[in-house]
Structure formats: C-alpha cells, structure tokens
Amino acid sequence: MTPINRAVCALTLLTAANFGGTSIAIASGPCPARFIKMIVPNPAGGVGDLISRVVAEKASAELGQPVVVENRSGATTVIGTDFVAKSKPDGCTILSLTASGVVVSVLRENLPYKLEHDFAPIIGVGSLPMALAVPVASKLNSFADLGAAAKSKDGITYGSGGTGSLAHLSAVRLIKELHGTGNHIPYRGNSDAIQGLLGNQIQLFFPSTAEALPFAKSGKLRLLGVTSDERLPALPDVPTMKELGFAGFSPRLWFALLAPVDTPPNIVSRLRDGFAKAVIDPSVQERLRAYGFTTEIQNPPAVSAFMKNEAGRWSKLIKEENIKITD
C-alpha cells in the first residue's frame, strides 16, 4: 500500500469513528438527508481524494452533519461530474472539481453536461503545484538530461492519469517548449501512473507535490523541478521551473466545490460558510501545507471566472497539439 493510500485509509477510518456512534443534529445542516455526499470524480488514493477527505473531515463538524467522500471515477472525471449534474439540487450531493475536470470540458465535444450551465459554484479552495518526476533508476539525473532525451530520436515516454488530465497537458507543454517529442501512456488515475514511474515503465510524470513528496522523501522518485513560485520548504533542493528557465510554466492542480444548478442560494451559502471555516482551520492548514497546498478561498463568481479562464488557457495547446480523447 502506498503512503497516499495509507493516508486515505486512515482518514476514512477516522471519519467513520467520528460519526459511527454519534447522533448528529441533522436539522442544523444544509442537507435534509442523513449526510452530505462529496463526489470525487477520480480514483481513490489520488490527490483529489486525499485533499477532499482532509477538508471533508473538518467540514463535517462545521456543517453539523457528516460529509462523506465517494469516488466515482471514469472517463477522466466525466462519470462522477455527470452524476452530480443530474443529482437533486438540495445540497446533499456536491462535486470536488479539479483542473482536469475543466480541461475535459474543452477536450470533449458531446459531454452530457456543461460546467458553466449545470453547476452552482460553492467555493474555490486552493491549489497544489506539480512536480516534474522521473524514476530513480533512470539516467535522467538532471533537467539537461531530460532535455536531451526529449530531443533524441526516440523522444521521451511520459505518463498521465488519463488523456486530458493536468499531468498530461503539463508534459505536452514541457516537451513542446523543449522542442522534443514524446510518447504518451495514459493510466487509470495518478496512483497507477506513479506505479508506472516507479517501475521504470515511463520516463516522466507530473504528479502533484502531495503525491510526489512521500516517494521523493523515501528516495523512490527523483524530482527535477516544481511548478510553484518559490522552492517548497519540504523540497528545498528541488528548483522551480522558473529557476530552470521556464518562467511561464506554472500549472497548478486547483480545487473547487460545486453543487447542481438550481441548488437554493441559502443552501449554497451555508455550504460555502462551512467549507470556508474548515479550510482555514489551523489544523487543516497544517496538514495541507505539508503537501505544498496553498489556500485560495474564492466566492462563486470568482470560481466561475477562474474555470472560464482555465479552459481558455489550455484550449490553445489542445488545438495546437491536436489532443483528442478517443475512448
């Protein structure tokens, strides 16, 4: 079991212990059902799952009823996102959205939902930088080695947690800026991609810092760079992409919570207040900062504007590189 999976299991057990034998005052919460269901449209064990569980645990206390994380992965976030879009707009089912969910909305032409029309933003939570990771067993000991491999006859083989994910587009953009070529291997989630990297099946992967840290600390992965503005305290020897000569290369895995459209404004407001208090709680902040997470609380209009800007930012690269989802 990986360190990320162990953390997820621990959080799941802790949540169960907190609510298993406790009578929650349901009437005080924003949802008329027994609990609030937070849908994570990614596989269990990934960073979206981990961050969602950290926040949900504290939000349960703030909202007055359990917030239970449920993974509904598949089709690069589409299955879980569509489930929330079609859920009853009563505050009992919400979506934990990351940047990959917005990218998919640009890549897929016939989605069963539209992010800008079928959801009511609740709150923007914050973001994580990405890490440029290579296998310890590889000959890629420096960024210069990586550049040479990308420009070689065979190019470089890179992985992702799925076509259209932020890790996928980050690698495409980097290889493009290196004037190299790459061969993409999509996995069923970031956890599987990390295992591919550990097994030396791929040469490059862009996990979030939350996913990369345990393996970097244990010496199982080599990190050549991070996309944060400054070096991370937990990784003081790893340069930023800006230091490596790529000042504009700063993809980040951001998080926001959405409800189905037509969710009553008073319920959205209660959810927003509860999650905002949870995110800024000192104990939650301490846990999130350990992964390089930066809290960036955004109100609903700001979340909508951010999603629109994020879609526009990646659409140019998608068109230039003719990236398509074929499944």
Rank of each mutant, 00 (worst) to 15 (best):
S87G: 02
P121V: 13
A75Q: 15
N141L: 14
P89M: 10
G101R: 00
K151R: 14
L97N: 13
G80S: 10
C92G: 10
K151Y: 04
L146K: 10
V102A: 14
A120G: 09
V106I: 08
F143V: 13
A99I: 04
A75M: 08
R108G: 00
I122C: 09
K151N: 08
P135I: 07
N141C: 06
S138M: 10
R108N: 08
P112D: 06
V84S: 04
P135F: 01
T81F: 00
V78E: 13
M130H: 00
A137N: 12
A85D: 02
K139S: 15
S138G: 10
T98E: 11
L115D: 05
S105M: 06
A137I: 04
D90K: 02
S138L: 11
A150Q: 10
T76E: 06
A133H: 08
A133M: 10
E116Y: 13
K88M: 13
F83V: 13
L115G: 09
P129V: 01
D145I: 11
F119M: 01
A144N: 13
V78G: 04
C92Q: 12
L95T: 08
G101A: 07
N141H: 15
V125C: 09
V136N: 14
S96M: 09
K139P: 11
A120K: 15
P89L: 07
I94K: 11
A75P: 01
K86E: 15
I123M: 09
